[in-house]
Computed example of a mutant assay.
Amino acid sequence: MNSPQTLAIIGTGMIACSLALALRKNTPKQFPHIIGYSAGDSCHQAKELGYIDQICSINEIFSQADIIILAAPLLINEQIISTSPAPQPHQLVIDVGSVKSSIMKVAKKYWQEHACHFVPCHPIAGLEKTGPKHANAELYTNKRIILTPDKHTCQAKIQQATKLWQTCQAEVHYMDAQQHDKILSKSSHLPHLLAFTIVAGQYQRDGKSCFEWSAGGLRDFTRIAGSDPKMWTDICLSNPTALKQTLSEFMQDLQHLQTLIEKQDGKNIQKIFQISKTARDNFYQEKDPKHSP
């Protein structure tokens, strides 16, 4: 990755533009030309902000770029793969989606042996805000990036993708795609679904009163309900097997808590709450002693 390369972004939102900013900041001579495409007006915003130099079509991107970042919503990324030319040996294609198994299947189906040049990636970083105006060159600093290659993925491409993220000061990890989807359904997808459901349900039943009479708890817990609805719809549709199991387990836990409340079983209610508090406090104390709760 020493010679200058053309970087391409398909889906010029906050995630991809932050990656472009970080790469340009840390290796200014490596990517002198960044091109981009988006179905909406974010591409023009990204160009005005200087995050990309040129707006191109998807076909132009696949013919001109050395590194291609798929950063559109998940189902759109899969559609792009199904209609785009297969990557060439000199090209690296990565994505930044929150579900890995489905897009890997699509890449193998349509790109066949050329899918070896595709390295699925998931940056465990982001905000509930969207759009290039929220891009931040420091977004990936000290954040975890999960790569989910399989035995068919080209080792040189895995190394290239790893170096790309390390250039952004990120911490790279490797995981099986199905394991990734199962873990993220619990650590990320479920919390988002709960936030969306709580806000939508209470607002539809009670209107603005649910916000007017809330303290910081509702606001803090449902912050992520401000995330992109299209992106999270695609995540739900792309990870149904893991989410079905995760939602089932959560509903069992919630039903158990409801039963304890009905029985006025304060001892076991408090026991659940204490387990939760201790687990959370210990985790964040170990992760960052200076900023533990």
Rank of each mutant, 00 (worst) to 15 (best):
S3P: 08
I10R: 00
L19A: 01
L19E: 02
L19H: 00
L23R: 02
K25I: 13
H33R: 07
Y37P: 00
S38L: 12
S38G: 08
A39G: 09
Q45M: 14
L49I: 12
Y51I: 12
D53Q: 10
Q54A: 09
I55P: 00
E60N: 02
I61K: 00
S63W: 09
A65H: 01
I68S: 00
L70I: 09
L75M: 06
L75W: 01
I81G: 00
I81F: 00
S82R: 02
S82I: 07
Q91F: 12
V99A: 03
K105R: 11
K105M: 11
A107M: 04
Y110G: 01
Y110D: 05
E113I: 14
H114M: 14
H114C: 13
A115H: 03
H117A: 15
F118E: 02
P120M: 11
C121K: 00
H122Q: 08
I124W: 07
G126M: 11
G126K: 03
L127C: 14
E128V: 10
G131R: 04
N136S: 04
N136L: 11
E138C: 05
Y140S: 07
T141A: 15
R144K: 12
L147Q: 03
T148M: 08
P149I: 13
D150C: 01
D150I: 05
K157A: 06
K157Q: 07
I158D: 04
I158R: 02
A161C: 06
A161R: 01
Q166P: 03
V172E: 02
D176W: 07
D176Y: 04
A177D: 02
H180R: 04
K182F: 15
L184E: 06
S187R: 03
S188D: 05
H192Y: 15
A195G: 02
V199M: 06
V199N: 01
A200F: 13
C210R: 03
C210H: 06
W213H: 11
G216P: 00
D228P: 00
P229M: 14
K230V: 15
K230Q: 14
T233Y: 13
I235E: 03
C236P: 02
L237Y: 11
S238D: 04
P240H: 06
K244E: 12
K244D: 10
L247I: 11
S248G: 10
F250W: 13
L254D: 09
L254A: 13
Q255P: 04
L257E: 10
T259V: 11
I261A: 05
K263D: 14
Q264I: 15
Q270A: 15
I272N: 04
K277V: 13
A279V: 14
D281M: 10
N282G: 08
F283A: 07
Q285I: 15
E286N: 06
K287V: 10
D288H: 04
K290N: 10
